[in-house]
Design a protein around this nucleic acid. Structure first.
Lengths: 205, 205
DNA sequence: GTCTATACATCGATAGAC
DNA sequence: GTCTATCGATGTATAGAC
């Protein structure tokens, strides 16, 4: 039983995980250079001084590699968001969260593509990897609630707006701020509108 | 001189253009079935009863085929938008335009992917094809102006919002209306906010 | 367990006959 | 314009050495 169980203190599995991480890092480098969809397993293997078939000792398939990249990227995003300085101002907290998310996404077009869009035909995140992505959303929703945005529809509008800004920025003005500079204002606009809607609903009852 | 010039009345070039259009139509079919990025030139050739190398008599490369698809898709979108019933109400006109655009995008995930996102590594629209896409934007901006939204920043916010809704809808709830149902409300929210900003600016001067 | 070596199917693209 | 033949590269997979 103990031999079949994953043991993170086992030096062998530790080395294995370390090399896996090294491969994922090299894959991100290639993705940044050529695009996420243009990663060649042979070139990736060469980058970590392996032969291509040896990669299959670490990943069951190329889609499995993408899943590992997806997981790693979302984990980093979650770290970044967890490290945000806390605030008593709930609205300020929302803005910081949205800003950090946006900055993270725009730092790296390749990362942005894999995490936010679906550029790989046939790639669907594992339940495990998807859970990390869900955590990012859940954490955002939490802060929106704290800032008075409780209606799920309003939350959807907010997330769509942030995603839309990032997408437009990435696609039409990479490296600039033509769209992203409106982030704070639009976050406030949505928060205010949600507040207004809430009052209307209360009056309506 | 006349032999080297493109003559659309020449039956030979007309047949050529017709077959090119047939190939593009078949390519869209494959894109709908397998995804835009998963089109196989051999399968496409078989669909129009040709051998794979014969496609190169109609397209210089696979990217050239994608460009033709991009052009055709945007042309159809422009037709659709031009056919919208006119209104005296400028705000209503904006909403109709945004609604038609959204409907068009969501009708076909593959079309949505090629026209709005950049799912093909290395694909950049030709200047000619891009011009059609620009026309769609220009027409939207025109109606926004008529509805009192004159600030370019506000226009950017509006386009990003519409794109964000479409993207979220397509990615997270294909076929549903969880995000898109807020379109009208958000268009009005942005129009109202632009109006408010304009008054602030006038007061500030 | 991890590696080398190799085979296989498929892909986009090109050359040249007709 | 359409074909056959072929190229180089890719992702996938297996066999077998150590």
């Amino acid at each position: 039983m103990s031999t079949s169980t994953v043991d993170s203190t086992d030096p062998r599995t530790r080395r294995h995980e370390a090399k896996r991480a090294r491969i994922v890092a090299a894959a991100w480098e290639l993705a940044r250079r050529d695009g996420v969809g243009a990663i060649s397993l042979r070139e990736l293997a060469a980058a970590v001084e392996l032969r291509q078939p040896s990669l299959y000792a670490y990943f069951a398939s190329k889609l499995d590699l993408y899943d590992a990249m997806f997981h790693e990227g979302n984990s980093r995003l979650l770290e970044r968001l967890d490290a945000l300085p806390p605030t008593d101002d709930a609205r300020e907290a929302v803005k910081r969260y949205a800003r950090a998310f946006t900055e993270f996404a725009l730092e790296d077009p390749a990362r942005c593509a894999l995490l936010l869009q679906r550029p790989i035909p046939g790639f669907e995140p594992t339940a495990d990897s998807y859970a990390v992505a869900q955590q990012v959303v859940a954490c955002f929703v939490e802060r929106l609630h704290a800032a008075g945005m409780v209606d799920p529809g309003d939350v959807d509008c907010m997330t769509a707006m942030v995603g839309g800004l990032i997408d437009a920025q990435q696609s039409n003005d990479p490296g600039g701020d033509r769209w992203v500079r409106h982030l704070d204002r639009l976050v406030e606009l949505h928060l205010d509108d949600a507040q207004r809607q809430r009052h209307h609903r209360q009056e309506g009852q």
